[in-house]
């Protein structure tokens, strides 16, 4: 499982980096999205990977070894929400830029041939 998660995070982040270095805004936003997925999974994995362990309990007697760490799960929820909001904001600006400049290049103008 560790190998699969590590590969998934690595491939997504790597593709994200390649995409944000591309000149078109669509590629940029796709890259940012991929990177945000990779980061979210990464945060989740930082609570250590485990199967079949609940993060919360109602019983007062607690053996911590039997439970997943709830904190990274809380963090990743917050990170998803914030990432979602900022990405939506960026989309709006992208559309604004496309309308104002008439180009989807990140510099706001087509490169000279």
């Amino acid at each position: 499982m560790e190998i699969v998660i590590a590969l998934a995070v690595g491939v997504m982040f790597g593709s994200g980096i390649w995409l944000i270095l591309r000149p078109r805004t669509f590629q940029l936003i796709t890259g940012l999205l991929l990177m945000s997925y990779a980061v979210n999974i990464f945060i989740f994995a930082m609570g250590r990977l485990s199967v079949d362990r609940p993060p919360i309990t109602l019983s007062p007697a607690i053996d911590p070894a039997q439970f997943a760490d709830p904190l990274p799960q809380g963090l990743v929820l917050t990170a998803i929400v914030i990432g979602f909001a900022t990405t939506a904001l960026y989309l709006v600006i992208m559309i604004g830029a496309r309308g104002l400049t008439g180009s989807d290049h990140v510099d706001g103008k087509e490169p000279r041939e």
Partner: peptide, 23 residues
């Protein structure tokens, strides 16, 4: 809008770095 696009893109990537560091 030109400057803003770049400013926001840079800061979004920096925020990912922040999250990775915190994690």
């Amino acid at each position: 809008i030109r400057a803003g696009m770049q400013y926001i893109a840079i800061n979004l990537v920096a925020s990912f770095m922040f999250l990775i560091g915190v994690a």
